[in-house]
């Protein structure tokens, strides 16, 4: 029992994944510990969302293993995978609310699909989840009437509707005003502690993420380039970590996309035009 409590909930080993010609992960090792908030950070385009979809079993890796709660996600049968997914919540960047259902029905959706609760009990459950994200009063609104921050909170209520063991957040802070950003930061921390969840936050918003994360992985170029608590990373002398955390334009992550030599390139262009 004690060992199970300490074993990581998600264990990723030697993960490799490619989109077409482009290698997105090239040997990633990651552990996500139970009960904590683990942040996965990195510049845009490093495949953070892809990583969540790999953990959820929607994409298959080229090589390597992903174990969730001791089960290899990509070896499971379709039924077992669906059983496992009921215990995972994923909060999409867009919220991914069902546009033809109102807020209440969106939160009720997983309950209606997976349980046969009587209507009165279902209503109580949905209102509890909506209360937890502070939107009990918005239950009759349609998704098109919600602001981006509210839509994410509804999606969060829906993600925790089935009382999962783990919630994954895909860029929860992107494009939010400071107030709703603050609300989301508080919510993620509070829900994690109150419900005994394990949370995975994928983000490139350094301040907000660092303020709630227990452990941070930094990804770049398909590899883990730094890890530790926010404190450790801030103190580390890794050039990469410093560049990312402080937001410097040039450093180990170059300002320029790989290109041939500038002067040569210009010369070629003029020759090309002449011929």
């Amino acid at each position: 029992m004690a060992q199970e409590e300490t074993a990581p909930l998600v264990r990723i080993r030697g993960l490799r994944f490619a989109r077409g010609e482009r290698m997105i992960f090239d040997g990633v090792d990651l552990d996500i510990h139970r009960g904590g908030i683990t942040a996965i950070m990195g510049p845009s385009g490093t495949g953070k969302t892809t990583l969540l979809k790999l953990i959820g079993g929607q994409l298959r890796p080229l090589a390597g293993t992903i174990e969730v709660d001791g089960q290899n996600v990509h070896r499971l049968s379709r039924d077992r995978l669906y059983q496992l997914r009921k215990r995972m919540g994923l909060l999409f960047q867009s919220g991914a609310l069902l546009t033809d259902l109102n807020v209440f029905e969106n939160v009720a959706f997983p309950l209606r699909e997976h349980t046969r609760l009587p209507e009165s009990m279902l209503r109580d459950l949905v209102l509890m989840k909506l209360e937890a994200v502070g939107l009990r009063g918005a239950r009759t609104l349609m998704p098109s009437e919600l602001s981006g921050g509210m839509a994410r909170r509804v999606a969060l209520a829906r993600a925790i509707a089935l009382d999962p063991m783990m919630v994954m957040y895909d860029e929860p802070f992107t494009g939010q005003d400071p107030i709703s950003m603050g609300v989301l930061v508080k919510l993620i921390r509070r829900l994690n502690d109150a419900l005994g969840l394990t949370s995975v936050v994928v983000s490139h918003d350094v301040q907000e993420t660092a303020s709630i994360a227990d452990y941070i992985y930094l990804l770049s170029g398909g590899k883990v380039v730094g890890q530790g608590t926010p404190q450790q990373l801030g103190d580390s002398d890794s050039a990469w970590a410093q560049q990312f955390l402080k937001g410097e334009p040039d450093g180990p992550v170059p300002f320029h996309y790989p290109a041939p030599d500038y002067v040569e390139d210009l010369m070629v262009g003029s020759e090309g035009a002449r011929s």
Partner: peptide, 8 residues
């Protein structure tokens, strides 16, 4: 995709 992740 969201539905799939809700095991629907």
């Amino acid at each position: 995709s969201g539905m799939e992740m809700m095991a629907v």
